[in-house]
């Protein structure tokens, strides 16, 4: 549903996006991560046929972003960085206006408006001037606008910024529902916990280039090494030294705990545990240490910075 090859954008003497490749299928969420000014917004604008790529090609919802621009725009729902609402309109008027631009019938607009405003908890404020909305409400309404014409592809820039935790969860649930109904979603966010929850694929973009791209677990393994497991025991280790299978190494050794880095957990973890049991140790817990996407992201950025300096 989103396919880009060698996509670049040059503004005067600035290369904002540098030959990127993307491939996101139906029902998948790609999260685009990167520092401010990395080229995320420019990428989204090219994918919505708002900006013309300097080089490369892209297809969104099956349409070419240059040759079939208006088809592309009709097939995507976009949540922009600035929600850009009209303060003197109310939510119903605002959505009717956008629905008309997408050529939806009055009945469909009314039905979708009621449905989406209820889903996002805005029905109570449907007749209120948008200038009186809180930041979070505006953000939710902008998301409703993006979803109004039920597009097969959604490009969402910071969908939960400025939202309270409950509203943010509502939005995340809505994204999960969209994903379940085979919508393709490209999400730009700085909220790494959210990215981890929603992403099927992560792409890290820096200085216009995609420096890492892949599934979250693969990305973590690639950037942070093999997964780390911790074993906790009821008693002291008393000089216990396990027979380490190939691809396992001890990272830290505590009085009642051991941390291992394991290359192939499925094969080696059962061996490790049986060795511990045979050594007479009583295992309280054996679990994978959580490694956040934030660690992986920071590692990626730092590696790229070092590479450029080198």
């Amino acid at each position: 549903m989103i396919f880009a090859e060698n996509l670049s954008k040059q503004f005067d003497d600035i290369l904002a996006v540098d030959h990127i490749h993307l491939n996101v299928g139906a029902g998948k969420v790609l999260v685009l991560l990167g520092p401010n000014g990395a080229g995320k917004t420019t990428t989204v604008r090219m994918l919505t046929s708002v900006l013309r790529p300097t080089t490369g090609t892209a297809r969104v919802a099956g349409y070419d972003v240059v040759r079939e621009a208006s088809h592309v725009r009709a097939s995507v729902g976009v949540l922009t960085e600035h929600h850009g609402l009209y303060g003197r309109m109310n939510a119903r008027e605002y959505l009717r206006f956008y629905g008309s631009l997408y050529n939806l019938s009055d009945k469909l607009i009314a039905d979708r408006t009621s449905e989406l405003l209820t889903t996002f908890g805005l029905a109570f404020a449907a007749s209120k001037r948008l200038g009186e909305y809180s930041k979070g409400m505006r953000q939710k309404l902008a998301l409703v606008r993006a979803m109004l014409h039920d597009p097969p592809v959604l490009l969402l820039d910071e969908p939960t910024s400025a939202m309270d935790p409950e509203s943010a969860k509502t939005v995340r649930d809505a994204i999960k529902n969209l994903k379940a109904s085979h919508r393709t979603i490209l999400l730009c966010t700085h909220n790494l916990a959210e990215a981890e929850q929603l992403a099927d694929q992560i792409a890290i973009i820096r200085l216009g280039k995609i420096i890492y791209q892949g599934e979250t677990t693969r990305l973590k393994r690639e950037l942070l090494g093999s997964p780390v497991y911790e074993a906790r025991f009821s008693g002291n280790l008393n000089g216990y030294s396990p027979n380490l299978p190939d691809g396992v190494k001890i990272l830290t050794r505590g009085e009642k705990s051991l941390q291992f880095m394991v290359e192939d957990p499925e094969t080696t973890n059962p061996l490790l545990m049986s060795d511990m049991v045979n050594a007479g140790l009583q295992i309280v817990s054996f679990h994978e240490m959580t490694r956040s996407l934030e660690q992986a992201y920071l590692e990626a950025i730092s590696r790229d910075r070092e590479e450029i300096h080198a």
Binding site: V50, R73, G84, A142
Partner: peptide
């Protein structure tokens, strides 16, 4: 920008 993202 939201206007520019429509099929207009």
């Amino acid at each position: 920008e939201p206007l520019l993202n429509t099929p207009l």
